[in-house]
Amino acid sequence: MEGKKLDFFVLIIKIVTPFILMGAGFGGYVLLYPNQFTDVGYAPVQPIAFSHKIHAGDLSISCNYCHGLAEKSASASLPSTQTCMNCHRFVKTDSPEVEKIHKSFNEDKPIEWIRVHNLGDFVNFRHNVHIQAGMACANCHGSIEKKDVVRQEKPLNMGFCLDCHRGKTEIVWDKERVTEAHKHQHRKTTTVAPAKAGIQGNIAGWLTEHRTMRASENCSACHY
């Protein structure tokens, strides 16, 4: 071929367009189906078909009864087989699922639960700080008491955490804990000015004012 001048404009269009299309396609896919890229919807089959709907929902057992470590430690912990046996020594002993609990207790073999909510190793999320601040479990775990199988409801990515820390997400408060906390002096560890005088006892007022709450935006709060 001779003499055909190279049309740069067309060449650039020919190279760049596929990339733009691919980028748009991928981006659109991510936006339309975000749950494909987070762990939302993860609901593995557990070794025992434990239903939160029955226990936490219908029977109204408090979250702290089984996950008591949440207010003290970084990890919320799972209940020991002993905790289940507290009731299931007598309750529904004919059920094959409860049989599994008995088996674990009698053979001294722990129940091998599948972990649902997991963050990367580079994140140090601590439950105790959040629970002590008065946040309800539902903020991050959704309405677990309505579910038979535990399913991850929220993406739990850094953006999700920062949205709340930056005061953009509405918080579901643990009313009992908030009431209790406001009977005592407000912690002097916050960087926000302490509660105004007169707010103590006026929980409804406090709740209206604090639909959202800002918290630490320091990297070292979670990454250390």
């Binding site: 002993q82 639960w113 972990r115």
Partner: peptide, 9 residues
């Protein structure tokens, strides 16, 4: 898949 093994007793 990660497992959590709590205490038995």
């Amino acid at each position: 898949v990660q497992k959590i093994l709590p205490y038995v007793k």
